[in-house]
């Protein structure tokens, strides 16, 4: 017997929630309990009074399951609003990475040259290492990290995706 897999597409959701204890567990747990997929999840307080957080979730699902994910999120009591940015249309997605590279001589110079091409900033330097800060879409960061492997990659920290709709309206 074979277990069938469904066609999936990638969606980016913006979820506005009450900033209360357990909210992240509530959301992440709902995804696991119902067998949904989380590719990336970021969360932080976005209000002046520490009361509201914005969660950006990247998930892959069939269109049918996608509709369920949004409905199930909206059903959670502390959730204010769920926006499917992918369906909404034009939006900007960005990620930040801190990339540590160690090496000497030609590797060190090549790392700096590549960083310049990718508009990565040096945020820490020693005689034998750099830490670069790079922002952009996930593909750009993937590519930058890939290149850094050639010149002495030591460690990577990535934020995961944050996203916002283009234009003057709030999502």
């Amino acid at each position: 017997m074979h277990i069938k897999e469904e066609q999936r597409e990638r969606h980016t959701l913006a979820v506005i929630v009450d900033n209360e204890p357990g909210i992240l567990a509530r959301i992440a747990g709902m995804f696991t309990a119902r067998g949904y997929n989380i590719e990336s999840l970021t969360v932080t307080d976005i209000s002046a009074d520490d009361l509201v957080s914005r969660i950006t979730i990247v998930t892959t699902a069939s269109p049918h399951v996608m509709e369920q994910i949004i409905a199930q999120l909206e059903r959670l009591v502390p959730v204010h609003k769920v926006t499917d940015l992918t369906v909404l249309g034009e939006h900007v997605e960005r990620e930040l990475a801190l990339v540590k590279v160690a090496g000497k001589g030609e590797h060190r110079i090549e790392a700096l040259r590549l960083a310049d091409v990718y508009r990565a900033r040096v945020v820490d330097a020693t005689i034998e290492s750099f830490v670069f800060e790079v922002t952009g879409g996930s593909e750009k960061i993937d590519k930058f990290v890939e290149l850094m492997r050639e010149v002495g990659l030591i460690e990577v920290a990535r934020t995961g995706i944050v996203a916002i709709a283009r234009g003057k309206e709030a999502a």
């Binding site: 049918h64 509709e67 369920q68 409905a71 199930q72 909206e74 059903r75």
Partner: peptide
């Protein structure tokens, strides 16, 4: 009354 019950199993 529950939107998540709609289109869950049957369209």
């Amino acid at each position: 009354i529950d939107r998540s019950s709609v289109n869950k199993n049957v369209r």
